[in-house]
Each structure stands twice: as C-alpha cells, then as structure tokens.
Design a protein around this nucleic acid. Structure first.
Lengths: 205, 205
DNA sequence: CTGGATCCCTCACGATACTG
DNA sequence: CAGTATCGTGAGGGATCCAG
C-alpha cells in the first residue's frame, strides 16, 4: 500500500494527501460528532465498500488523524485524535460553503440526522449567543442528540444530556427548517429560551 | 459526462461533490491568488494530464465556481467567481491544518513560490496587526508579488504594487523561514516596519 | 453477528499523441 | 496555445468469504 501523493511542498497539498481522497472527509464528518464503529460508518457512507473503508481507516490512523479504541461492546471504535479534532474549523468552513447551495433535499439523497448537528455548529454565531447558557435535547424516533451553548461556545453530541433544560420532539432539521411555530415542538422548557437558542444561528450566511 | 455524486443531503457532501475530486482544491488554490491560463495550471499541477485539467475546469465552470475569461494575450484565462472566492475561508482553514505537519520540504516535492502567498494569508492574525498599514513587495528571480495589511485585513497578489513602501529581495519563504536577520533582505523601506509586518503572522498556531 | 479481507469488474486517472 | 483523442493502469465499487 504505497500512498499516492501530490508531491507538492504546500500545506494544502499535504492536507489533501491525507484527507483529500474520496470518502475521507465524510468519514471524518461522522467521527466529528461521535465515535463510531465500523458497521455504523459503513451504513452512513452508503456505497463505500468495506475494503475501501478499512483502507481509509488504516491510513487515517497511520496519519494520526483518528484512533482505534475499544468500545463497550468489545469491538473496535474509531474516534478523532487531537489532530483530527483540529480539522473541525476546516470542516465547518466547507459546510458553510456547501450550504450556499441550499439545504434542499435532492430526490434520492440519503440523509442522517446526525449530519445536521455539525451543520448547526457551522452556522452558530458566537456574537449572537450573548450570555445564553442552555442545553437543548433533541429526540425524534431513534434520533437522540443535544446541543449546548455556553460561554459563547457551542457543543453537540449524541444521546441524552442530563443538564438539558429544554426538550423538543424534533430532529435538528424539524426544528430549524420545519414549518409552523417551533415552540409547538416543546416537550419541556421555556419557549422564549428556545427562541433565543434558535436565534444564535444564521442559517443563511 | 455524468458527474459522480455522494448522493447525501449534507452540505459537506455537496461541497465534496463539487470540490472534492482529485486536483480540484489545488487548482482553486492557484486561482485564489491570481487568474491563470491553461498552460500555467498545467505547469503548476505537475502530473495532472491535460485532459483531466480540461474536465475539471469545465465542471467547475458549470458549478459556477470559476469563470473562463479572455486574457490580454487573447487566450482564455480562468478566475474565481464570487462563489469561488467564498471558498477562501475553507482553503485557509485547510492550509492551517496542513501546516501542523510542518513547513519542511520533502525531497522530491515541487514548489511554487505563489503557494506561500496563500499560506501567509492563512497564518495572518488580524488582532496582531493593530493599525498597521503597509504593502510589502517581494521580488526574487522571476517571482514578484506583494502583500498588503490595512484595516486589519490582508490581501496578496502577483506582480508589482505601486504603493509598496517596503521592498525585499526575497520570496515569502526566504523572508519568513530564511536564516539570519530578515532586515538584510531589505532593498527599500524601514526595518522596524518590516518587523511589525512580520509579527502579524503566527507561523506556528 | 461484527469486523474486516479477498476477488473481480468497471471506471477514473495519468501519460502521450494529436488537432484546430 | 488550448485543448481533444486514445489507451494502459490502478483505484473505486460491489459481492462474497473468512476469522474472532
């Protein structure tokens, strides 16, 4: 397995050598939200082929972008290293650019609710957050995730957050792109705070 | 020419559909500094093959990322559209990440001085610039470029800037990575201002 | 059953030759 | 000079197989 390289002494070319191959950015997108196992990645990256996924994981691990750990179930779990997490600003910048093509769904497109969590982070505007401190719990079907704003920083994650003061019966897309008053999604918490939370994001940039 | 797509309703996947193919980011890197003609791109992207370059240019033009214009010499010249320029933050973020692998040259790597102009923009720190307003002219061999700081913004370009108050006999790499006192590169201008200019960049982030 | 490895076919890539 | 045409090669994609 001899890796192909652009052979250019340029930071962008070096970055492209590592994360520029097909599927790699999307793979890192998934890991940016939560550690994943092989099967989950295979399901998320529809069409990748298990051999290619294995090769990508191996290369990224060798490049110190991801690490292979041990999950609760005993099997391997992949997560970002520090260097991998350092990619997040670049991912968010690319997402912002991609959003300029509109959030519209193309017929036949796949969709995972998890992806919207990173998109949400991409359109978060620290200056709009003020001194807001809140954690919002999303739940819809088998999708369960949270988003927290605190100290003008935003963090997201999968699963349940114990400190969530607001619970909505919605995915991220439901809440931000759905029709009607978002407040009707509320299961628990204050409608005004939810509005304040939502106003911290600029869907159109 | 049916384009391959990830078919995911995700901004990052949509961005990858457009600028995620091999060579594309490097091609846009070149155009981000200056409009280019076919031959120049072919020379910069060593190894691309003229058919592939032609295909990439066509796809990017169709996606409204680049535009094909007419140069002084009568031949076609490619430049970024507004949407292409909107990619710059993402390019700079990727460059910053790539820089964490160090600026060291690998044996056999190609290098164009132009690439360092974008890298310089990537490590520019507005907060360090203060109220500095200066244009620095680089010249070394057939390389001629300028970098301007004004209103805590930085711009770069190829060629000569009439308003350059500082002239150095150096490439960007010479000035920032070269050994010895940078001031000895001065041809015209104030050494203290040059130091101030250089201190507006954080090569290590 | 999960986490891969192996195989094989196809297509995108890369080099070169050629044309307006 | 700016591409187009052609073609060999290797990476990608899909299915299947194997080990823990």
């Amino acid at each position: 397995m001899t890796k192909r390289s652009y052979q250019q002494n340029c930071a962008l070319a070096r970055a492209s050598d590592i994360i520029g191959e097909r599927w790699t950015l999307l793979l890192l997108r998934d890991l940016a939200v939560f550690p994943r196992r092989f099967k989950e990645l295979l399901a998320s990256l529809k069409g990748i082929g298990s051999n290619l996924l294995a090769a990508r994981l191996k290369d990224l691990e060798a490049a110190d972008v991801i690490a292979r750990g041990q999950g609760d179930h005993g099997g391997p779990v992949y997560s970002l290293t520090e260097r991998g997490r350092a990619l997040e600003p670049a991912l968010l910048a690319l997402i912002r650019w991609g959003l300029s093509y509109g959030p519209e769904n193309q017929p036949g497109d796949h969709h995972h609710e998890d992806w919207d969590l990173l998109a949400l982070k991409a359109v978060f505007q620290a200056t709009r957050a003020g001194n807001l401190a809140v954690t919002v719990q999303f739940a819809s079907g088998d999708f369960e995730a949270w988003a927290r704003i605190e100290d003008q920083q935003m963090t997201v994650g999968l699963g349940a957050a114990e400190d969530a003061s607001i619970h909505v019966d919605a995915t991220v897309a439901d809440l931000f792109l759905g029709s009607g008053d978002p407040a009707r999604r509320l299961i628990k918490g204050d409608a005004a705070t939810l509005r304040q939370f939502m106003s911290a994001f600029a869907l159109r940039i």
